[in-house]
Design a protein around this nucleic acid. Sequence first.
RNA 1: GGCUCCGUAGUUCAACUGGAUAGAAUGGCAGAUUUCGGCUCUGCUGGUUGGGGGUUCGAAUCCCUCCGGGGUCACCA
Length: 591
Amino acid sequence: MENKLIEKVVEGLKHLYSADVDEKQVQIQKTRKEFDGDLTVVVFPFLRASKKGPEQTAEDLGGFIQENVDEVEAFNVVKGFLNFSISKKYWLDVFSNISDQIDYGFQADSGKTIMVEYCSPNTNKPLHLGHLRNNFLGYSVANILKANGHNVVKTQIINDRGIHICKSMIAWQKFGEGETPESSGLKGDHLVGKYYVEFDKAYKVEIARLIEEGMEKAVAEKEAPIFKEAQSMLLKWEEGDAEIRVLWAKMNQWVYDGFDVSFKTMGVDFDELYYESDTYLLGKDVVAQGLAKKEFYQKEDGSVWADLSHTKLDDKILLRSDGTSVYMTQDIGTAIERYKKHTGLSGLIYTVGNEQNHHFKVLFTILEKLGYSWAEGCYHLSYGMIELPEGKMKSREGTVVDADDLMEMIVADAKAMTQERGHLDRMSEKEREELYSLIGLGGLKYFLLKVDPKKGMVFNPAESIDLNGNTGPFIQYAHARIQSLLAKAESLGFSKQYENVEINSKEQELIKLMNDYPSVIKEAGKLYSPAIIANYIYELVKEFNNFYQTVDILREEDVQKLAFRLCLSEMVAKVIKSSMLLLGVDVPNKM
RNA sequence: GGCUCCGUAGUUCAACUGGAUAGAAUGGCAGAUUUCGGCUCUGCUGGUUGGGGGUUCGAAUCCCUCCGGGGUCACCA
């Protein structure tokens, strides 16, 4: 419809003023609620062509369009805005068209493959609140890209080596007394995290002692015996020392087992895993080649740098003077590796916090400099930090919010809330437990995803499972109610067959909103933003609640209308479910 | 210090990427329905869009400049 209007506007301008206006000049938008009409054309850009005032131009154009477009029943002009009312018949046709599409809103196969990286944990401690946003975001964006017709490869790179890993290992050796997840009953990642904290404690004690003995703080930090032990362990690891490698493999496995449980609770998964222990040497040869081709330069001390003076970025070190690589080096290597493995990959999305904005800007610049044309398909899906209502939470200050604890807590809250007001009578114990986690985690996910990813946000646990407001449970509730309505209709033997009905304005609003669904999916895919989906669902649900409140459904006497309203409600439920699934949130039929 | 992102009702977020009188939710207040699900709905309250300047038919959005906040610029990972 919008395309048709654009076409006719261009035609109309030509006819009326013999002016040629490019289609791109024509802005069509949905008419705001305060005004009459469905679609609005902004006429300001045409004033130069018409040589008339905005009102007059709009009147002229409106007349032409009404004449020439059957579906346009009426128009009105407010300032420079031309509002068109589209016929009810048209909207009814739209509805019958969309209601029998199976994957309504989803785009056809694009033939493109896009890789989405998210999570990317360290194996020395459990996941925290920030990881939740990361995982939900990455997983949802992957879903959204799939809905846009792309083939998606979900991946993560696991930071399984390095000095921080050695720290947990040292502490476990020293203080662990052979403790295992089995013997302690602790989840593997929590157990390893515990020793990471142990290391830090011991380290601080040693530093304090050295300072007391008259050492400078900076020196003490490097001279502390336990720190030196960790360093020498790292060297041994790199040499492939058998004993260290066995310990390393054992402790990492504990962590992986723990993570698997967390991933399952979160409802996320991956298609392909990368381990830093396999990739950390990648990129060195690329840097060497770049140096030979004079794309990089070497300083006197032997370190290798990328010259980024053509941008506003500072030069970046790629190899240390001792020839070892830095993070950037392996990121370069890994990106190249991925494009080799997936030939024709048309996008690589990194879901990483915004503190790394600079890092990725540099990475992409260097890849471009090296002449990889695919670098423009790389995208840093950057997201802001989460704060709690009480104040900031930062991972270094020890006030980290553990992901597992948080999820457990929120499910417990959901349980309490649901038991208080839920309709659980006919549910088995298993169904109930599933429902609690559906509500708790659904609320959590929705809350974290409804905000524009780029922005920082405040997470309020209590609010996230509130049944009122822009929350997951509010939407789940609406869905459950529609299902219950449909079930009741069926038990009463109402038909869902209708021929011709006159639709009212509430129904028309709902159809218009559902008609937007495909373009919302496109928009969300273009901007990598689940928030766009979330806000759309909320709009739809509010509109439905409004309809539900003001229009009788089961009490309607006209069987045609009743049947139509059932179909309409059913379709709303379908769109709710489909769009919530894009966020990774399932919706119950009863709650 | 250089670069960069951000600042919107008391609070949490929107604003179709330059469009109409900046909208929701929550909170508070006042009502309606109390039936297909305990819910839901309506109204009121609340804003110098951090301040100032500019660009134009039109600015929360673009430019400049201050103020305030975050991030980053490691031979750390």
